[in-house]
Each structure stands twice: as structure tokens, then as C-alpha cells.
Amino acid sequence: MKSHLLIGSCLLVLLTLAGCSRDDGAAPVAASARAPEKVVNVKVATVKRSDLAETFTLPGSLEAWQDLTLAAELAGAVRWTGPEEGARLAAGAEILRIDPETAKANLDQARADCDLLGKQLDRVRQLHGDGFASQQELDSAASSYAVAAAALQRSQVALAKSSISCPVPGILDRRLVERGEYVAEGTPVARVVQVDRLKVQIDLPEKDVPFVRVGQTVTVQPAVLNGTAPGARSGTIRHIAYNPDPATRTYRTTVEVANPAGDWRPGMIVRATFLRRTLDQVLAVPLYALLEREATRLVFVEEGGIARRREVTILAVVGQQAVIDTGLEGGERVIVSGQQLLADGAVVAVVAVEE
């Protein structure tokens, strides 16, 4: 019995010594296993107050300022054609003539008749004054002269109508008849387009109507063709429809844009940029600096090599900038790259500063 107790006491002592030796060796191992804190490389941008212009862009199409189809005002054969298609015309330039010989002959006859009846009226008026012609004869002579004068005026109008002229400065887009062709009254004979200025027709959504007014400047940019983007031009709003399109609930808006060289053509697709509002002295950060965690929008700012979490609220989004309402005061160095996996208090190293 005593031998068993002696053996048990020895084992207890040995186990106690072994446990102490293990505890003494574990402390240096744990201390050596502690890894240095990870440093995250980031890019930052300093938040400053500035003015931002909030714009919106809508598609539109170009139309000629005036697109006129000229028609024959009297029947006859086309005797003369002038400018060729594509010619640039001044207002009043003659395009073609329709049977001017007949019109001129009718005018000469009407003028002769009017002259004759005018002389007869003078003689009857003199005889009536001397008491040799009755009032009825005077009235008859006056009536005949008035009829002749009206016929003369009609002949003058007919001669003028025999010449088809350009009513506005423009381009002869198409000539629809040829020399020798007979045309009836009302037959389309030419198409003229005025393109030294153009109309941009845009369908304006109802929500944007309060921000747009007649006389406002708009930036017009044609579509990119063959990899080439023509330069943008300024236009002016000339009209905003009062009645909406019943199908789209949009308001047809007309923008005037200068086209002195005629290089923009009707039918081209363009983009028109309107100013919605100007935000004065606001704080804004790039959209890609924003994070959303647990339905909260936030950014990280760098303070002495430490990332600090800041919850923010957004007032508006202007282009690629988020306008900050609350959460920043200005002057902070917002982390714009490398923030996706950061936590509050993380150690960071600034490797670049964005302007």
C-alpha cells in the first residue's frame, strides 16, 4: 500500500514539472507569432467647395429652318430653268419660268385696252361737262375703264406668277420639273430648304419643363459618325409647346442653331444638353468613392495614416460627382481608391493624391 502511494506521488510531481516547463516555453512562441498590422495603399482626394452645373441631355433631330415646296400658280409649259439642284440661292432668285410669253402677250393686250378705255373716259367726262353726254354715258365709260384696269392688274399678276422665285435665302434641294414639261396649276415644281440656321426638335419630358425657358442657351452635339465627332454648337430655345404629345406626354421644344457653312444637314441626330440648375459652393466627391454598407452610404477619410469611416447623405448626383449634404465639412482627404475592404481605424498609406 505504501509503495503504491509513493509511486502516485512521484507521478504527480513529474506531471507538475512537465506542465510548468510547457507554460514557460509557450509565451515566447505566442509573442513571436503576432503579425505586424497590415497597411493598405490608398489614393485620396481633398474635398473642396465649388460650383457645379447640373445638366441633362436629350436626343433630337435637325430640321431645316424652312422647308418649302414651291408650286405652279398658273398652267403652262416650263420655258426656262435656271439654277441646278444644290445651288445656293438668295431671296428672290429666279428658279424657272412657266409660259411667260403668253402671260406677257395678255399683259400687253390688257394694257392697250386699258389705255384706250381711259382715253374714252376722258372724252366722255369732257363732253359730260359741256352738257353733250348724259350721266349714264359717263357711268358706262367709267365702268368699262374700271373693268379694263382690273384686267390689266390680273395680267400683271399672271406675268409675275409665270416666274417661280426663291422666297427665302436657301438651297435648291430639288427641281421637280424639266424644261418643256407642261404643268397644271398647283403642280409642285421645286423644293427649297433654308439651312443657314436649323431647328432642333426635342421631346421634353414633363419633369424637366420647369427648368427650361424660351431664350435659354443649349449645347447641341451631333452624333459620332465614322469615329469623328463634329464640334458642339450653342443653340437658343425658341419655343416650348403648351400641349403635350398625348402618347408620350412630352412637350415639343424647338431650338435654333446657326449653320452658316451648311455642314450640318436636316435629318441628322443630335444630343442637346440643357442646364437644370446651378449648385453654388457645394461639397462633392467622386461617385466611386462612395460605399454602401447596411443601407448606409459612407466614405473613408484619411487622418494621419488611419482610415476613418464617415456616414454621409447625398443631396444630388451631378455627372460623376455626388454632392454631399451632411457628413463632411470640407478639407477632408477622402479615400477614392482602395477603400472597398477598409474598416474604421485601418492603417493606410497614401500613394497618390487626385486633383
Rank of each mutant, 00 (worst) to 15 (best):
A27G: 14
M268R: 01
I171H: 01
S61R: 09
A142N: 12
Q201W: 05
Q340W: 13
T57P: 09
R97N: 06
D122N: 13
P266S: 06
A133Q: 03
V334C: 08
E302H: 08
Q153L: 09
R111L: 04
G319D: 11
L107F: 12
K2Q: 06
P100Y: 01
G118M: 02
R179I: 11
I240W: 13
P222F: 09
V168M: 04
T69D: 05
I164T: 13
W65M: 02
A110Q: 02
S337N: 08
R197I: 04
G215D: 15
D130A: 15
P59N: 10
Q339P: 09
G319V: 13
E84K: 11
D245A: 00
A190M: 08
R309Q: 09
R213C: 01
R213D: 03
W65I: 02
L15W: 14
L152H: 00
V323L: 07
T250H: 05
E329I: 01
K104T: 01
S144R: 03
E54N: 11
V351P: 05
V209P: 03
Y288T: 11
D208K: 10
E178L: 13
R271E: 07
I335H: 01
R175A: 11
D203I: 06
G180E: 14
A150Q: 15
R197V: 03
L342N: 06
M268W: 05
V347W: 01
N106W: 02
F300K: 06
R252H: 13
V44F: 02
F132V: 12
S21H: 11
V40G: 02
K2F: 00
E302P: 07
S234L: 02
F211Q: 02
V193D: 00
E137N: 11
F132C: 04
Q156S: 09
I171V: 14
V200K: 00
D67E: 07
S140G: 06
V39M: 11
V78G: 07
I98S: 07
A93C: 12
A33R: 10
G227K: 06
R34W: 00
C114W: 01
I314W: 02
V353Q: 14
A27C: 05
